[in-house]
């Protein structure tokens, strides 16, 4: 389509203005507020025992969620693409459920299921805390991050087809060898994307996690919960900014990793 010069420029101005107003301003504001009192103040605020504990907990959840999502995501994607079974359409819809359901609802349903009065409440009464413990937070994060690996791997599986795997079979490779030497390497970029998205979402998840966490500072606060607690409960506005900046830093790191990988993908 051909557009005139003034039209082109005004489109750019509108698009950029929109982005700056909605995305740029809040981010810059937080960064400015964080570093205004100096780097030392920032470091002191993110080095408190509660902040370090929150960072560790967030990273621990990521470390548990990512491998589980990789394994089950690849298996689910394989089932969706290659499987010929009844209820495949239903599975397709279920995979997208976390996109549609509000995280708060996820939290509530987890409590109904695993809480003291829930279906699996016996576990809770026996002393194994799922709700208000780490398992609950992991379950909540797993739920909201479930689609990412599946949805990134699925199109790649469609694209590569089964020719390469059949070729491997005729060359003597058994199912396991074919999976490790052919299928998995072919999926590597889709998988990497899925993992990056999972990490970003797991770090940023708030709604579902707050429902199932006991929220004790230094014990069961993730970074997002720390931001919330500092701002709302402690009236520690500066502390909230600092923790938010730390969270953003991790997100930016993940995004950078993704664009670096993306560039690498295009060159090979």
């Amino acid at each position: 389509m051909k557009t005139s010069r003034p039209a082109r420029w005004s489109l750019r101005v509108v698009a950029l203005g929109y982005l700056i107003a909605l995305l740029g301003t809040p981010v810059v504001l937080i960064l400015w507020r964080t570093f205004e009192p100096g780097l030392g103040t920032f470091l002191a605020s993110v080095k408190t025992p509660a902040a370090i504990s929150a960072l560790n907990l967030s990273l621990l959840i990521v470390a548990i969620v990512v491998p589980l999502n990789v394994i089950f995501g690849v298996v689910t994607a394989l089932a969706l693409v290659r499987g010929r079974f009844r209820g495949r359409g239903l599975l397709q819809a279920v995979v997208d459920l976390p996109f549609a359901v509000s995280p708060v609802v996820v939290g509530v349903s987890l409590i109904l299921l695993w809480g003291a009065g829930g279906w699996f409440g016996a576990l809770d009464r026996a002393g194994f805390k799922v709700i208000f413990g780490l398992p609950g937070m992991v379950l909540a994060t797993l739920f909201v991050t479930l689609p990412f690996v599946v949805r990134e791997v699925e199109p790649v599986l469609h694209e590569i087809g089964t020719d390469q795997e059949q070729a491997a079979a005729t060359l003597g490779a058994n199912g396991w060898q074919t999976f490790w030497r052919i299928t998995l390497p072919a999926l590597r970029w889709g998988l990497t994307y899925g993992v990056v998205l999972t990490v970003a979402r797991a770090l940023g998840e708030f709604g579902a996690v707050i429902m199932v966490s006991s929220g004790f500072a230094g014990v069961s606060q993730t970074l997002t919960l720390l931001v919330h607690a500092r701002y709302v409960d402690d009236q520690n506005t500066y502390g909230a900014y600092a923790a938010a900046t730390l969270l953003m830093g991790l997100a930016v790191l993940t995004l950078l990793l993704m664009s670096v990988l993306n560039r690498k993908r295009r060159t090979t």
Binding site: D163, Q164, Q166, A167, A168, T170, L171, I182, P185, A186, R188
Partner: peptide, 14 residues
């Protein structure tokens, strides 16, 4: 004990 060649090569791209 067969060798098979596919129409679309089935090359191992990686």
């Amino acid at each position: 004990g067969i060798g098979f060649v596919f129409q679309h090569y089935a090359a191992f791209k990686h």
